[in-house]
Computed example of a mutant assay.
Amino acid sequence: MPPKKKARVSKRTADSGKDDGTVSSSGGKRKAAASAGKNGKSSESPQYSHWLMKSEPESRFENGIDVKFGIEDLKALPDQTGCWDGVRNYQARNFMRQMKEGQLAFFYHSNCKEPGIAGVMNIVKESYVDHTQFDKKDVHYDATSKPDNPKWSMVDVQYQRMMKRFLPLSELKKYHLQHRATGGPLKDMALFTRARLSVQPLTAEEFDFILSLEDKEAL
């Protein structure tokens, strides 16, 4: 059973809401359409093992319900664990369907005065049906989704720790622009190339570089 208080994500500000044309109705991993290159080999979308997940730490009401959920809210839950529900973008959902138990994700504060990375959490339960899509009283209700063929999935996450220092979007953007010019690890970071997605993949190189910033002075 999911906890009474469920993790929320900023769909309107973080997700584009557009179908990327690669919906997997079976609930399996998202794969790009195979294409034959010059060598005749097919190509598939890369598999990731690190993530960045956005949620709103400041109060915002939808249909009279506060969708606020910051890292302190996750930390306050029983076992510091919550379900990451409410994702209503196909690409973000498909990334969650790739997640494996034990993988790490940054908790990113979005749609707030100072957006940025606040902490680290673990994926503790792999993707399963997001029950909020069937709840008419929930802000994430989707009348087009059916119990025998649900559209939306969620994962369970567990608080691991706060960042040693908050890493604001403004600082990450400076590194991104530097690395675009120099070929550094954040040159293609999804936070800037697919900015509206509330669930984003990170390469191991991107994840490790961002962790290293904890011990450095702000840029």
Rank of each mutant, 00 (worst) to 15 (best):
M163Y: 02
D79I: 03
K146V: 10
T144C: 00
L77S: 10
S145P: 06
P150C: 11
G82I: 12
K54C: 12
K113V: 07
K137T: 13
R93C: 15
W84A: 08
F166Q: 13
V139T: 10
G64R: 03
Q98A: 07
H179Q: 06
S110C: 11
K41L: 12
K113I: 09
S59F: 02
S110E: 06
P168I: 15
L177S: 10
E101G: 11
K54R: 04
V67C: 08
P115R: 00
E62W: 03
Y159M: 04
A92M: 00
M162F: 09
S127E: 00
L167Q: 13
N63A: 11
Y90H: 07
P185A: 06
S42P: 07
I123M: 11
K151M: 14
Q47G: 08
K54M: 11
G116K: 10
S170V: 14
G40P: 00
H50R: 15
G40V: 08
I65T: 15
C112F: 08
M121D: 01
G82T: 07
S49M: 05
K41Y: 01
S49Y: 04
E72G: 09
L52M: 13
Y141T: 14
Y175V: 07
F106K: 00
N94T: 06
D148H: 06
P46S: 12
A143H: 05
I71L: 15
V67H: 05
V67N: 07
D79P: 00
K54S: 14
D135Y: 02
K125A: 12
H50I: 02
Y159K: 07
E101H: 02
N63H: 08
D148M: 02
S127G: 02
K151F: 07
D156E: 15
S55V: 13
K174D: 10
D148P: 03
K100V: 13
T81R: 14
C112Q: 06
L177W: 00
D79R: 09
E101C: 14
R180E: 14
F69D: 05
Y175F: 07
I71S: 01
K137V: 09
I117W: 01
D142V: 11
T144R: 04
G102T: 05
D156G: 09
Q47N: 10
S45N: 08
S49A: 15
R161Q: 02
F95R: 06
S45I: 01
H179A: 05
Q80C: 14
Y108M: 05
N94D: 13
A105V: 09
L169W: 09
Q178T: 13
T182D: 15
K173Y: 13
Q133R: 06
P150T: 04
G119H: 05
Q160A: 10
E56G: 07
G82F: 04
G183I: 08
M163I: 06
N122I: 00
E126I: 10
G86E: 00
F134T: 03
T132C: 05
Y108G: 05
S110Y: 04
R165G: 04
A118S: 15
Y48S: 04
S127D: 01
F95S: 01
M99T: 12
E56T: 14
E101K: 15
F106G: 12
A118L: 01
E171F: 07
K151T: 08
M154D: 02
T132H: 02
D138M: 09
G40F: 07
G184L: 14
E126Q: 12
G64H: 01
R165H: 09
P57A: 13
D66K: 01
G64S: 03
K136R: 11
M163C: 13
